[in-house]
Design a protein around this nucleic acid. Structure first.
Lengths: 107, 107
DNA sequence: TCATAATATAACCATATCGTTATATCAATA
DNA sequence: TATTGATATAACGATATGGTTATATTATGA
């Protein structure tokens, strides 16, 4: 892959919110409505981050009825030479929200 | 490592010039005066990119007399989960400049 | 010690980035 | 079909980024 494309993907990963989104998606696919309450930012901000990751070829979306789920494209991460194994497991954030009843039932 | 630190290092890598600098340093340590002619940008611009990489903990500097050589901190790249093996070998750029006599004799 | 070469820092500017709020789009359902 | 909920897009603003030129710093050598 051209070095500019790799740089673009690394830049997409080089934001704390997006990198945490990627870490979450590493534990399981997530719906936009699940990601919003994890971070203290607006739904449009989350949508834009997801769009940025999608543009870099790092995630793909799947609509399930009303909801849109995002998942990692692991081959692309492999292609740019980035390994997820060094990222912390953030799935506890989703679990906490779920226990507090702050997640919409989207699946 | 905290995810913010990883994101910061990935952001440092997420610029085409800096990623190419890293690719060059992967082939051998380089002096600032060698890097300047490789890219079409000014010496201060190169210095700032190197400072950014240094701040992210990705490179270190060693002064040899008049010249300052930069080298990769490979453990840090490993720590953030980034592998250099997918980067193209850019050492030909230095070789071309050398053959054209456009490199200062700095070692 | 003074001139020169290499590098770093300062000040500045144009553009990109990342957030916001408001609004549009799309699917589900009463 | 009208309403509601989820998501995307538009428009905007504050700050970050990456380049420039000018200047300061540091080391070498006549």
């Amino acid at each position: 892959m051209e070095i500019e494309k790799i740089a673009d993907a690394l830049k997409a990963l080089g934001d704390p919110t997006r990198l945490q989104i990627v870490a979450l998606l590493n534990s399981r696919d997530c719906c936009v409505c699940e990601l919003v309450p994890v971070f203290g930012i607006s739904q449009p901000a989350i949508s834009k981050h997801l769009f940025r990751l999608k543009t870099a070829g790092l995630v793909k979306e799947t609509r399930r009825g009303q909801w849109v789920f995002y998942s990692l494209i692991r081959e692309q991460l492999e292609t740019i030479g980035f390994s997820l194994t060094h990222l912390p497991d953030l799935s506890y954030k989703l679990k906490e929200l779920e226990q507090q009843g702050l997640l919409v039932q989207c699946n």
